[in-house]
Design a binder for these strands. Structure first.
Length: 313
RNA sequence: GGCGGGGUGGGUGAGUGGCUAAAACCAGCAGACUGUAAAUCUGCCGCCGACAGGCUUCGUUGGUUCGAAUCCAACCCCCGCCA
């Protein structure tokens, strides 16, 4: 069966807790769609499910690379696909859960990602060029080789301009021509949401709890082990700011406040991927009792598509 | 009571006669997104307006001036030093 349950929503609304509950009730396994929980030893700051929780129900795509290893959308897609296959092979229910919108979409939408691994050296050179000569210097190259992508990408977004050029240089085919998608899953999309005010409050509480749990120690440990702050993994919320604090660039209170504020902003951005008015998503406000209606929604979905009685699983 | 500094848009804070609805940053709102995505990038952010544009603002009141957040006067409030 290629049916999966997907749970999306902004950070700190309670996706993980709900997923664990559902997985236990239905005998499911969780496939994470979180771009930060993939890194080992980054647990407190990424609000990773605890060891106990992971013991309670199998989680996939968590702790799959070290903080100094490259990770990417393509890699995620591959690994997640394999994980879901495994879950299905075991005859269990797969719950895709996470707040990384692009990851969820790439997986569900079956994105065909141009098979061009990053060329870090080339990227560095081009970034420097854009830095020195201005973004137009590289944007003009993209306009020449791939007008369609040039049209679609903001010229000031140097990072994306470079990726498009990178793809063309190594394949000889415009980036825009190599992009396609074909969905492979039937999914029940469940969205968790709440009022902004409430969301921000939840975020702030969570950040305070991370501090109590030893976020500073965690970041310190990572830095002591040589993980530099300019690693992509260390650019995540919490790690960046605490890193700045540890380097003496920021007071602790200031760092914590920034984590909160930037997480607010992040949560807002997440709604750009999971829109409240998206009719494909079954939205639930977490301020109301949410578990029961979601359970019946899932039962109905699974029965309808597989004829199986979930309660028996 | 005396002396000095200051009151600017939700916050911090530039601006010292026209180019200023007023920098920058923060907060907030909206959006883009196919191998860095918790990244990167964009728009809005006094009021009305889809746009053009209009309207009201820089403690208060009154003045100077063709023109004031910017100059003058009085008053109110805040902060520092002296008493």
């Amino acid at each position: 069966m290629n049916h999966i349950i997907t749970i999306v929503g902004p950070t700190a609304v309670g996706k993980s807790a709900l997923a664990i509950h559902l997985a236990r009730v239905f005998g499911g396994e969780i496939v994470s769609a979180d771009s930060r929980q993939v890194f080992r030893d980054m647990s407190i700051g990424t609000a990773k499910p605890t060891a106990e929780e992971q013991h309670l129900v199998p989680h996939h795509l968590i702790d799959v690379v070290d903080p100094d290893q490259d990770f990417s959308l393509a890699l995620y897609q591959e690994m997640a696909l394999r994980a879901i296959e495994d879950v299905h092979r075991r005859g269990r229910l797969a719950l895709l859960v996470g707040g990384s919108g692009l990851y969820v979409r790439a997986l569900l939408g079956g994105f065909r990602i141009p098979h061009v691994p990053p060329d870090n050296e080339m990227r560095r050179v081009m970034e420097e060029r854009a830095e020195a000569e201005g973004y137009m210097a590289i944007y003009e190259e993209l306009e020449r080789i791939d007008p369609t992508s040039a049209q679609n990408i903001d010229r000031r977004n140097v990072r994306r301009v470079i990726r498009a050029i990178e793809v063309f240089r190594t394949t000889g085919i415009p980036f825009s021509k190599l992009q396609s998608f074909s969905p492979i899953f039937h999914t029940l999309l469940i969205g968790l949401t709440t009022a902004r005010e409430d969301l921000y409050r939840r975020i702030d509480i969570r950040v305070d709890r991370m501090m109590e749990q030893g976020l500073v120690q965690e970041v310190k440990g990572l830095m002591e082990r040589g993980y530099s702050l300019d690693l992509p993994s260390m650019s995540g919320l919490g790690y960046k700011q605490i890193g700045q604090y540890l380097k003496g660039e920021l007071g602790l209170d200031e760092a914590v406040q920034r984590i909160k504020n930037e997480t607010h902003r992040f949560a807002r951005h997440q709604y750009a991927w999971f829109r409240p008015r998206d009719e494909n998503i079954h939205w639930f406000d977490v301020r109301n009792g949410v578990e029961e209606p979601i359970r019946s929604l899932i039962k109905e979905f699974v029965f309808k598509h597989t004829g199986m009685e979930l309660a028996k699983l």
